[in-house]
Design a protein around this nucleic acid. Structure first.
Lengths: 372, 372
DNA sequence: TTCCAGATTGGAATCGCTTCCAACAGGGAG
DNA sequence: CTCCCTGTTGGAAGCGATTCCAATCTGGAA
């Protein structure tokens, strides 16, 4: 009897017990499928993520899974590395009874796609991607780019390079826009500081530490190399650090490096970076989808999460600029700027005491920015 | 008409066209649920992974997803951090029509659990976990421990420590056994080399770089500190590297470090480590499950994947042992042992040229071991 | 032209639930 | 004592495919 298994309202206690006993005796196992079909909903959510193995993606996914699990949803994960896979799965998800709702992470949705979901009546939300008329949880990448750049300017840097990833071929990629937006923020902040934009200092390639190292190498071999590099992601920042080591540019003494995302290993490597709440973004996306599934309306369509600058030891004032980073415009807490540390061994940047690293501490400043 | 949509045998071309036309006109969308119910299978697989955010876990998951996706299965992912979550999901998966099959990664399955799955007729395979009577894709952790230890012995080390993770409270954890097995391999190899086991050199704590750094710190503060540390995972090896830096033990000059797993960042950090095919393990598990779902029998119940020693620059002969590691018993390729590199700056270990790092190269030796 | 095997097609039965509705049992009010 | 309202329970009607099976078409052979 359905009433016993589910929200047993109006069932006499004796009956309940009797039914349960029979169920036990017959070894009855309810069929999830049959229940779902007759109910009209499977309590299943699909999540589409690009490049699952990237640390930032995983953190988002984990955040979403936690919430969906709590809410009793099963989560089907689609990992997508190519536009073909993306299209294939998005098309399939439009079908009825495939998933109660869909979360799309970091992937740009074309207008017709969005329309198809609306037509099919399948609720959809995005995380880290904008899409017209779709509830979305995002960050302000432009502001993030400014935050990083402002940080370096504040330390006294004037020759700041950018290493990012951008689609090369036309439409061959999944349409990530974050790197471009961060570059935009970088340019705006430079402009406001009255520094002329130097195209030579901007290098873009595919998203990998390897390629980033290559690009950083080009920068460091310039006749007048930059004193700081802002990388569009922590992964790329690691490539930059690698190149710095390779080319004999001690960090942060001859080169400051700032990343973006604040993935776990960044703390271990003492990488200064723009922190974005990755797990939280996934969790928020999931929470909003659950809201939609419960019939709620997505109140503000766009939910923007805060960013903050995590200053660690991969960034400091430029050697040539004298001590202290006081020349900049960014308001740093007293005591920031060039950090007192053993400069004779440039590796002292990396592998500081891990216990100090994992949580905010005295020599790690969090600068709030873009608070919604 | 079902025949048109599916394997349309015996359908006249004109009829097919007519049906398709009507489908188009009515905007008909087949119901996945109804199809699944009547078919009796949903073409859905569940995968249970512990600690999703760990790099090794993600690689396994990604490997499995790739195969399952190719085979047309939807994959429900359950991330499990506690025994309660594990039990909850495993119980749920025993129900009918929940998932066609289940992949369990790294989690120990109790006997009654296995029996329950068998009784329910739900095929199950494990990856990186042994379970009586269950098809499993594993590695030989003991052999891996020996491989790492033999590598260090071969370099001339005699005082080799171990840092690993082990359950502290009774049964509070998910039952990972790899660290213990690797420790066992370490002990056996030492014994065979005629080196007495020193309990002081074995430290165990929870699985995190932070804790590992703590433990390594204790080791390095010993009156007679080890010249090499074997960490039970790359994550922990990173903690060890951090501690080495912190305590002024240049790597590899005063301390060699070897990890286990060969996750992506290990290559970037030039960490010597025991490579295990992570993505492949997930893929193989998935492949075997698909086999079971197609009615095949799991031929050899246990499938063992090969390990190999990746020698990078975090390990070299001990300073006190003179040049060359010829004193050991492990057959190293000519040219191995202490590597020629700038010893005046101990950071030269980290951040070598990334392009060199990602693929096997002249100064990265792969030592095959435990080939099934 | 008639008949029959094989190709097509329409329709009923099924997959197990959820849900709605009608039937029924009690018990207090009239 | 009868009536009516509420609390319970049994049973039928979907949910929307798949899958048989029987009915109908075909076309070629007789």
């Amino acid at each position: 009897m359905s009433r016993v298994l589910n929200g047993g309202v109006n069932v006499r206690e004796s009956t309940r017990r009797r039914v349960l006993e029979v169920i036990e005796r017959l070894g009855y196992q309810p069929s999830h499928l049959a229940a779902a079909l007759s109910r009209g909903t499977s309590r299943t959510v699909a999540i589409l993520v690009p490049h699952l193995t990237r640390p930032a993606t995983v953190e988002r996914l984990a955040g979403a899974l936690t919430v969906l699990d709590e809410q009793g949803y099963d989560t089907i994960v689609y990992n997508v590395d190519t536009p073909e896979q993306r299209d294939h799965h998005l098309t399939a998800l439009t079908a009825r009874h495939r998933a109660d709702g869909v979360i799309v992470v970091s992937i740009r949705l074309a207008k017709p796609r969005i329309a198809a979901f609306r037509r099919a009546g399948v609720p959809i939300v995005t995380v880290d991607a904008t899409a017209a008329g779709v509830p979305q949880t995002v960050i302000d990448d432009v502001a993030g780019g400014r935050l990083a750049t402002a940080h370096l300017l504040g330390l006294g840097h004037r020759r700041i390079a950018f290493v990012g990833d951008a689609p090369r071929g036309p439409r061959r990629e999944l349409g990530f826009t974050s790197s471009r937006s961060r570059l935009q923020g970088y340019r705006r902040e430079l402009a406001e500081a009255g520094i002329e934009f130097d195209p030579q200092l901007v290098r873009q390639g595919s998203h990998s530490a390897l390629v980033a190292a290559e690009l950083a190498g080009e920068l460091l071999r310039l006749p007048d190399p930059p004193t700081a590099i802002f990388a569009a992601s922590d992964t790329q920042a690691m490539g930059v650090l690698s190149a710095a080591e390779q080319h004999g540019f001690p960090v942060p003494d001859r080169l400051s490096v700032v990343g973006f995302d604040d993935i776990e290993s960044s703390a271990l490597l003492n990488l200064s970076t723009v922190h974005q709440p990755l797990a939280q973004s996934g969790a928020e996306g999931a929470r909003r989808l659950c809201g939609l599934l419960n019939g709620a309306k997505a109140k503000p369509l766009r939910q923007q999460l805060p960013l903050r600058m995590m200053q660690r030891t991969s960034s400091a004032g430029p050697a040539a600029a004298g001590s202290g980073g006081g020349g900049g415009t960014w308001p740093l807490p007293a005591g920031s700027g060039r950090r007192a540390h053993d400069r004779s061994r440039f590796s002292s940047h990396a592998w500081r005491r891990a216990a100090d690293v994992m949580l905010p501490r005295r020599n790690e400043w969090c600068i709030e920015g873009a608070l919604l």
